[in-house]
């Protein structure tokens, strides 16, 4: 069971880390100082969640039998193997390759304009909010504890991003147009929330994870409620893009990782 739990925990960590990295690109570039700080706070919250998951994943791995460790070979950071020490959170964040990341495609898309950023955050927070309510019941006490700590943060992210979706959607002609464009670009990436990868199905069956398919209806309801106020309409198109959960990414992730991982790649194990 711990093998699947390790992969599942990495998936949750990657979602949080990659969106944190994307949002942090606004730091120093926000539309106004107050929103610059708001989006940076959200990025930091997500980074904190990612750390909790990576620490948990590293501890899980270190406690596995040699046989199980060998079977996870393909998910481990290659440079770490030459360090000859136990696995640590930073190894997982900074030394894995693109195809080893299991984050949703939605999280890795470039930050776009403010409309794109807040709409993506809204979709993600609405999902995370429902997800954490379920993860509270996880049979893994550590995951349940992370869910409890994070759900308060996410409640605020959802409130904040919902309000921005309404402000821009029901705002000026330009802000409405930009929200429409963001919606057209983002919608096809929202289906991946509810398309369970193999390790997610295992997680739901074993009881340490969440059956994401069951969250779809509540998520749509939340989206429609906010959209109604924002004078936006969810697109009818049902086709959706996926692949991120199994390591097939858009071309954007490589650039993101190149920037984020540069220091640890060039100066392995360096510290502040």
């Amino acid at each position: 069971m711990n093998k699947e739990l390790f992969i599942y925990t990495l998936h949750l960590a990657d979602n949080a880390l990659i969106l944190a990295q994307r949002n942090s690109e606004w730091t120093g570039h926000g539309p106004v100082l107050e929103q610059d700080i708001a989006i940076t706070n959200i990025a930091l919250d997500l980074l904190g969640q990612a750390r909790n998951y990576y620490q948990h994943a590293a501890a899980l791995y270190n406690s596995l039998s040699d046989h199980d460790k060998n079977s996870l070979e393909g998910s481990l950071p290659r440079p770490w193997k030459s360090f000859h020490r136990e696995l640590q959170e930073d190894d997982l964040a900074f030394l894995r390759d693109e195809h080893q990341y299991r984050n949703l495609l939605l999280t890795e898309l470039p930050k776009g304009d403010w409309a794109f950023t807040v709409l993506r955050q809204f979709f993600f927070s609405a999902f995370q909010h429902l997800f954490y309510q379920e993860l509270l019941q996880s049979s893994d006490p550590q995951l349940a504890a992370i869910a409890e700590k994070s759900s308060k943060e996410v409640a605020y992210h959802l409130r904040w991003s919902s309000e921005w979706v309404v402000r821009l959607g029901d705002g000026t002609e330009e802000s409405h147009r930009r929200m429409q464009e963001a919606l057209a670009d983002l919608w096809m990436f929202t289906g991946e929330f509810f398309t369970a990868a193999g390790y997610e199905q295992a997680a739901a069956t074993e009881g340490f994870g969440v059956d994401v398919l069951l969250l779809r209806e509540a998520w749509l309801k939340k989206v429609e409620a906010v959209f109604a106020e924002a004078t936006l309409e969810p697109p009818k198109q049902s086709w959706s893009q996926s692949g991120g959960k199994s390591g097939q990414h858009t071309e954007h992730l490589g650039y993101l990782l190149a920037e984020m991982q540069y220091l640890q790649r060039v100066y392995p194990n360096t510290t502040w």
Partner: peptide
């Protein structure tokens, strides 16, 4: 002090800027 479009945004901005 801070800038905000209305009272609700002002409270949220204050939360983000002054109660971190």
């Amino acid at each position: 002090s801070l800038h905000a479009a209305d009272a609700q945004m002002a409270v949220e901005n204050a939360r983000d800027v002054y109660t971190r």
